[in-house]
Simulated assay, not measured.
Amino acid sequence: MNTAEPARLVWFKSSYSGNEGGECLEVAADGTAVRVRDSKEQSGPQLAFTRGTWAGFVTNLGRDGF
């Protein structure tokens, strides 16, 4: 998968995240990938997941043993 960041992404932080400067992640989606970055290092590295992989991850978050 091409992990180069598209020119424009809209990043979102969880509504559960406060503004205390803790450990927060931001997520953005484009046509092919869901990207994750550290909210404190916005120009730093990112992880890129296929949309299917991300959907599986989110689906399994609430399941026992995950």
Rank of each mutant, 00 (worst) to 15 (best):
F66Y: 15
G62M: 09
L25G: 07
S43Y: 13
P45K: 06
Q46C: 09
A48R: 07
G44S: 05
A29V: 02
S43T: 15
P45V: 03
S14D: 07
G21L: 01
T53V: 10
E20T: 14
V36C: 11
E23K: 00
C24Q: 03
V36R: 05
N60A: 15
D30V: 07
M1G: 15
D64F: 09
A29T: 09
T50R: 04
S43M: 10
W54R: 02
Q42I: 04
S17A: 06
C24I: 01
L47P: 06
K40R: 13
T59Y: 10
W54Q: 09
G56T: 11
V27H: 02
E5T: 15
F66D: 14
V10C: 13
T53C: 06
L61P: 12
L61V: 15
V36Q: 03
W11Q: 03
G22D: 00
R35A: 03
C24F: 03
G18A: 00
V36F: 03
G65W: 12
L9G: 11
E41L: 09
D64M: 11
F57N: 02
G21R: 04
G56S: 14
N19R: 10
F12M: 13
L9Q: 05
G52H: 08
G22I: 05
T3H: 13
V58W: 00
A28S: 08
R8W: 12
R37N: 05
A4L: 14
Y16T: 03
G18R: 07
G65V: 01
E20P: 02
G56K: 05
G44H: 01
R8D: 07
G18H: 01
L61H: 12
A28Y: 07
N19S: 07
D38M: 01
S15K: 15
N60P: 08
R37T: 00
G65N: 13
L47Y: 09
G44D: 10
G52C: 09
S17D: 10
G21H: 03
